[in-house]
Design a protein around this nucleic acid. Sequence first.
DNA 1: ACCCCTGTTCGGCG
DNA 2: CCGCCGAACAGGGG
Length: 269
Amino acid sequence: MPELAEVDYFRKQWNPGLGTSIRRVQTHPAARIFRDSPAVAIERGLAGRCFLGSAAHGKQMLFEFSGGAWLGLHLGMSGELRTAPCDHVPAKHDHLVFVLDSLSLVFSDYRMFGRVSLDITEDGLAPSWWRELPPQPADAGFTKTRVRDFMRRFPKTPLKTLLLDQRGFPGIGNWMADEICWQLRIPPQTPSGTLDDLSLEAVWKMTRRVSREALRVIGTDWGELPDSWLMNHRWRDGGICPRRGCKSELVRDDLRGRTTCWCPSCQGG
DNA sequence: ACCCCTGTTCGGCG
DNA sequence: CCGCCGAACAGGGG
C-alpha cells in the first residue's frame, strides 16, 4: 500500500500516544520485520520510555522516544499502523504492539516486507541513516537542478523506473510514478536520456505537485483523490482514461518488473 | 489451482 | 560502474 502520502497517514495514527510512556512491548519475535533489530532488543530498549514525536521521510518513518531512543519503521508492501485499546490482544499479524496507559500502538504487516530498527543515540540527534536521506519531493532541497542531474545519470532507464528510485524520488511508489507520467503525457517507458531540459523540469514540477496533493488529500485523512486523476481508474480492467475528451482504454503492462498503467492515446507510447 | 500485488534487495550476467 | 533480469521474501484476495 504505502507511498509517501499513505506513510504519513499511518504515521499520524500513533499520535494519540504522544507524551505517554510505554508500559509494555509485545512482539512476535520470529517475525521478519525484526531482521534489522531483534524483537528482544526493541522490547528492552523501549519499555518505560516516553513517546515524544514522529516524522516521515518518503517511505521511511522515525519515532522518537525519551533518552535518545529512535525507532525506524518501513511499512513495506502491506504494513499498517493503528491504535487499539490498551487491553488489545495482538492478532496474527500484529507483530509489534506498544501498550501505553490508555491505548496501544499497533504495527501490523501480514507480508512482512516491512521492517523496524532501533537506534540509541548519545547526542540527542536522530540516527545518521535518517539524517542522510535524500531530499523529499515536498522539501526545499528537492530542486530542479538536483532532479535534472539525477536523471542525467541514467539516460537509458525509463522515466517510470527512475521515478521509483528512492535515491532520487524518495516516497514515490508505483501508483504515483504512473500518475506523474500520465499527467505529464509522457510514455512511462521513455528513456530519460531522450528528455530535454524542459521535460526534466516538468518532471520535477509534476513530482512536487502530485506529491503535495497526495499528502494533502491522503496524508490527512485518507481522502479520495479526484476522478480526474489516473489513480481511480488504473486498476479496473477496461478502465478508461479520465482525461477530458480522451476516452481511450487504459493499458496495463509490465515495465521492468512492475505493473504499469498508461494511456496509449494521450501518452503516445 | 492459479495469478496478482502501492516494496526492496540480492546475485548473476553482459 | 551501468543496466537488466529474475528470484526471494510472505500471505491474502480475485
